[in-house]
Amino acid sequence: MVKCFTINGYLGFMKEKLKEQRLLFLSILFMMLFSFPFAKIMNGSTIILGIPQLYFYIFVIWLLLIFLTWLIADSRLFKNKKNKDE
């Protein structure tokens, strides 16, 4: 309990808050990317690599979302010390 009042505890807490905010941002951004204006912009009859344009767009964005979630939540890049220890 006392631990969270140390500087490291405080920084860890701030980092945790930042992680939450990053993930929230990611979620809102991609919800928009999958929805009306963007989905409509990508709607079309072109075929990319044998896949209709809109399907292609959705799968690429989806993969990007997964990658970014991994980057923020589980990669070493953003991991704070506490997680590394585990």
Binding site: E20, L23, L26, S27, W62, L65, I66, I72, A73
Partner: peptide
């Protein structure tokens, strides 16, 4: 669910 997944943490 893919959109919800980042919010799992929250």
């Amino acid at each position: 669910p893919a959109i919800m997944a980042p919010l799992f943490w929250i």
